[in-house]
Design a protein around this nucleic acid. Structure first.
Length: 239
DNA sequence: GAGATTC
DNA sequence: ATCTCA
């Protein structure tokens, strides 16, 4: 049986990859990250006829020259965020600052990340959860917002946009329910709603509730006591 | 809260 | 998704 896993990724790669993710789709994000590696990363070797490069060091990502180049290859407004973010971290902190944030509290790490250009609450939570060991971090995108409002927090169905206030409310809701597993719960919610996982019994959206399928979830009891995490929690330290 | 930003 | 403007 397959499960939903929250990986422990490299903080630098995670931060810059999620800066690329804003208002963007996965194929394009993947292409952008590969471009960063190929253009600015160290050559690692090749397997067959495919060359592999490491994710760049931040010192190689800063500067207006980088920004201009990234813009010319289709990074859009994210080009500025990437170069400025690298500059900011190296100027105000150092190259190991992100790793050091692993020993900070979730609230401190989140607040610090939100200071960076191109990093808001959502990207900060993604970095916290996927690379900084902050498993109470709950990244709330428009998708998770809609799912949560519909199935778990009905009073939010009338909210017109994902404001900072609503963002906090949703995260706090899951933290109260799942504590240190809140981030994992978010991953299950998110994954369960992906079309390609709709028929994957082991991680169906409705599994966070007591029973039944996704289609009939609306008619179910909304009581929090029916929420179950059950025995499908998993974690891994590498891909 | 609305609109712009990249493709 | 973040930022800017109002």
């Amino acid at each position: 049986m397959r499960g939903v896993r929250v990986l422990r990724q490299d903080p630098v790669e995670t931060l810059f990859a999620f800066i690329c993710s804003s208002n963007n789709n996965i194929p394009r994000i993947s292409g952008m990250v590969e471009k960063l590696c190929h253009e600015y990363g160290e050559f690692l070797g090749e397997i067959g006829d495919v060359a592999y490069y490491a994710f760049p060091n931040m010192k190689d990502l800063k500067g207006s020259r980088v920004e201009e180049h990234l813009r010319s290859v289709g990074f859009g407004y994210r080009a500025k965020f990437i170069s400025q973010c690298a500059s900011y971290i190296l100027q105000h902190h150092d190259s190991e600052w992100l790793e050091i944030l692993r020993s900070a509290s979730y609230n401190d790490a989140h607040a610090a990340l939100c200071q960076l250009p191109g990093v808001g609450a959502k990207v900060a939570d993604c970095v916290c959860l996927m690379s900084l060991d902050k498993h109470e971090a709950v990244p709330v995108d428009t998708h998770v917002w809609q799912i949560t409002a519909k199935h778990y927090m009905p009073h939010l169905v009338t909210t017109k946009s994902l404001t900072a206030k609503v963002y906090k409310q949703i995260g706090d809701h899951y933290r109260a329910l799942f504590g240190e597993y809140a981030g994992w719960a978010q991953s299950v919610l998110f994954t369960a709603d992906l079309k390609r996982f709709q028929d994957t019994q082991s991680i169906s959206h409705a599994n966070l509730k007591s029973s039944s399928s996704k289609r009939s979830v609306e008619s179910q009891s909304k009581s929090t006591s029916s929420y179950k995490v059950s025995a499908k929690k998993k974690k891994k330290s590498s891909k």
